[in-house]
Design a protein around this nucleic acid. Structure first.
Length: 708
DNA sequence: ACCGCGTGGATAAGTCGTCC
DNA sequence: GGACGACTTATCCACGCGGT
């Protein structure tokens, strides 16, 4: 026994394999030949090797000695006996120890490798000895197949989808993470793939997912994701069948029926949440032509008009509820006893204006800094404290648990806008939410509920419909056309410019200055532009405040907002429902995000997730729309996953560039920002912008508005 | 030349039976 | 019960034909 390990040990140093020495090559083949010759009949073409046998004494002598000691012993039968082939050898402690040593020895891999492909020098002209090439190859394949089967089985469990309806399923699948899991669960498959597929991990993940899917069609996690995602990115049914056949997605059939399930589940969820948390419903008509930006969309769609509604759930409000309602009662009591007067509001607005102005100036400055012409990246003083974002006046807590949930309800086909229809809409929405049976008989409840439904009036639509975005971009581009020339200015100089800009072009003071001029010195066009600038900046600051959850800033803005909405002819309800409510329940989701969100939803309904085909009717819309929220989240999620993986964070160029350019040239041609004494507005009186703030101040001062 | 109408292609949702 | 696939149904659109 002992000579054998000694024999192999003498050859474990594999450096000789790479020597060009002819002699050592022959000694090596001698070693192999003795192995193969020992096992006998596998490879008959070994005589050239056996010729060289006698050169190497170490290896030859022991084996022959052994053969002499035990007659009939071949290397094959010996190895077989040692390798658990003989009961006595299995048990014998000495053999067992030697076997274990061999099994764990570094020689073993080398032995096997040599069996698989007997080494030879690069100078060798002989054909390579067969060794046990085919045997080992078959054996390896068998091993690998067994392991892969096991790995695939475990992998299938990874790709199973217990819950494929909820949002978590669609946004909770992270490809990198999943790839890591696959790597750990199926190291061999992963290793093989990454060795032979020179590609990114998500491709290998997809290959594995496809394998699992063909293995068992319940292992379909990625297929489901891709099915829903691709369906709502406009993959046609034909292409769907194709990619289904390739095991990339689920069947088209599945996708469409699954959307219905998602909708149903979303409706269920919203009904459940509405019983727990405070909620608000907003709805809007979705047949409003959407022509402002997208002229290409005039595809003569004959959508009859209908209503799209969204439920907003304020989750965190519940935690606040007890004390807040008490506070609310208290402040109501105080409010009743000490009604707020005009001068109070006016004082508040005076007090808060400096704080607001800081933000206005900052945002104006931001336009400059963000404009590509300015090249902020290379600006010398870009770290100056003067240019840093302002800290919020009073920020609300934020985080995932504070997100306001929104759920689209099924769209309803109720054609015309009238109060009667509004009631029908409300009824239908309640019915969808399953509230009808319990509450519809109770007129009181319905009346109260109606206060929570927000029907958007027409006069604010254009403002809310993001039309102003283009105008703002135009405005800022005009202001910043000379941004490049400011590149070398000191930060404090920039700040000063921004102040000057606000004072002269975007403030009530500027308007006032204009108004005190004699009539023939006034410039109506410029005045109008100033008004627009001022209002839009307020809007931007408010938007910023809302986005940041900056309650303090929003409170500061309340007086100004009150002036605006009172003057703008919007109902007091508008202010009361939203601004004041915000004041009390301490939440940032005031009217603006809600309306914006509603517009987003409508855009999704009308443009992004528009279904085509003959069977699209309102019934189908009703079925589809509650699912849009999840679909949208999925879209975001997928693009995020793949952008970060494949394309980095590169953002596309703003689509509105052309619009902005046009607007800019129009502004420039019209000289709206220049002072032209005595200029009058062209066109009818109706085109003239009202200074709603002044009107609101006047109205508040004189009218009955405050009493309510 | 223009309009009305029928037809077939394209498309996608819906239905039903089958398989695991 | 979920997934699939063959088959059915419904609608729009392009095209062409025939009549005015």
């Amino acid at each position: 026994m002992t000579p054998i390990p000694g024999c192999t040990k003498s050859h474990i140093d594999s450096s000789w394999m790479f020597e060009d020495n002819k002699e050592s090559w022959s000694t090596s083949s001698d070693d192999n030949s003795s192995d193969d010759g020992g096992s006998g009949d596998l490879t008959p073409d070994l005589p050239p090797n056996s010729d060289d046998d006698d050169h190497e004494h170490d290896s030859q002598t022991p084996s022959s000695e052994l053969a002499e000691k035990i007659p009939g012993l071949t290397l094959g039968s010996f190895l077989h006996a040692v390798s658990w082939g003989d009961a006595g050898c299995v048990r014998d402690p000495q053999i067992r120890a030697a076997r274990t040593t061999l099994m764990n020895s570094p020689e073993l891999p080398v032995i096997l490798k040599n069996w698989w492909m007997p080494p030879r020098t690069s100078a060798s002209r002989k054909s390579r000895p067969q060794g046990a090439h085919s045997v080992l190859e078959e054996f390896t394949v068998e091993c690998v197949r067994g392991t892969l089967d096991g790995e695939l089985d475990t992998l299938c469990d990874q790709f199973r989808t217990p819950d494929d309806i909820q949002e978590e399923f669609f946004t909770g699948t992270h490809f990198k993470q999943l790839a890591e899991q696959c790597k750990t669960v199926a190291p061999m498959l992963w290793g093989l793939l990454s060795a032979s597929a020179y590609t990114k991990s998500q491709v290998m993940l997809m290959i594995i997912a496809m394998l699992c899917y063909t293995h068992m069609h319940h292992a379909n996690r990625l297929q489901k994701l891709f099915a829903i995602y691709l369906k709502f990115r406009g993959l046609p049914a034909k292409a769907f069948d194709m990619s289904h056949a390739l095991a990339v997605t689920m069947s088209h059939k599945w996708a469409s029926s699954h959307v219905a399930k998602m909708s149903a589940s979303a409706m269920q969820e919203v009904t459940r949440l509405m019983q727990i948390y405070p909620w608000l419903i907003s709805y809007d008509h979705i047949n409003i032509p959407f022509r402002v930006f997208s002229q290409r969309l005039d595809n003569k769609d004959t959508f009859s008009s209908g209503v799209a509604a969204t439920v907003y759930i304020k989750r965190q409000a519940q935690a606040l509820a007890p004390e807040v309602s008490a506070q609310l009662r208290e402040s109501r009591r105080i409010g009743m006893q000490n009604p707020i007067t005009f001068s109070d509001i006016f004082k508040l607005s005076i007090q808060s204006y400096p704080r607001i102005k800081k933000f206005i100036v900052y945002h104006a400055l931001r336009f400059l800094l963000d404009s590509p012409e300015f090249q902020f990246q290379t600006y010398t003083h870009r770290d100056s404290p003067l240019l840093q974002p302002l800290s919020p006046v009073h920020a609300l807590p934020h985080g995932p648990e504070h997100v306001t949930l929104q759920y689209l309800l099924g769209s309803i086909n109720i054609p015309e806008v009238s109060y009667a229809d509004n009631e029908r809409v409300v009824e239908e929405l309640l019915r969808q939410l399953g509230l009808t049976s319990a509450w519809i008989g109770d007129q009181m409840t319905v009346d109260r509920l109606r206060g929570l439904f927000k029907f958007r009036s027409r006069d604010i639509n254009s403002f809310d419909r993001l039309d102003w975005m283009v105008l703002i971009f135009g405005w800022l581009h005009l202001q910043m056309a000379f941004a490049n020339s400011l590149h070398n200015c000191q930060p404090d100089k920039l700040l000063e410019y921004a102040h000057k800009l606000i004072d002269e072009h975007a403030s009530s003071n500027a308007v006032n200055r204009m108004d005190v001029l004699p009539v023939d010195r006034q410039d109506e066009v410029q005045r109008q532009t100033i008004l627009w600038n001022r209002d839009v900046l307020h809007y931007i600051v408010l938007d910023h405040a809302i986005k940041q959850g900056d309650m303090g800033l929003m409170e500061d803005m309340l007086p100004a907002l009150l002036f605006r909405f009172t003057g703008g002819g919007n109902s007091k309800d508008f202010v009361r429902e939203h601004c004041w409510l915000v004041n009390f329940d301490g939440k940032p989701n005031s009217f603006l995000p809600i309306d914006m969100a509603q517009e987003h939803n409508i855009k999704d309904i009308k443009v992004t997730y528009r279904s085509e085909g003959p069977n699209i009717k309102w019934e189908y819309f009703k079925k589809l729309h509650p699912a849009i929220r999840i679909i949208r989240e999925l879209g975001k999620h997928m693009e995020q996953e793949f952008n970060t993986l494949a394309r980095g964070k590169s953002h596309g160029t703003p689509k509105k560039d052309a619009d902005v350019k046009l607007l800019e040239s129009m502004y420039r041609a019209a000289n709206v920002h220049d002072y032209t004494p005595g200029r009058k507005l062209m066109g009818s009186k109706r085109d003239k912008v009202q200074d709603v703030v002044v009107k609101g101040v006047v109205k508040l001062q004189s009218g009955p508005t405050l009493k309510r």
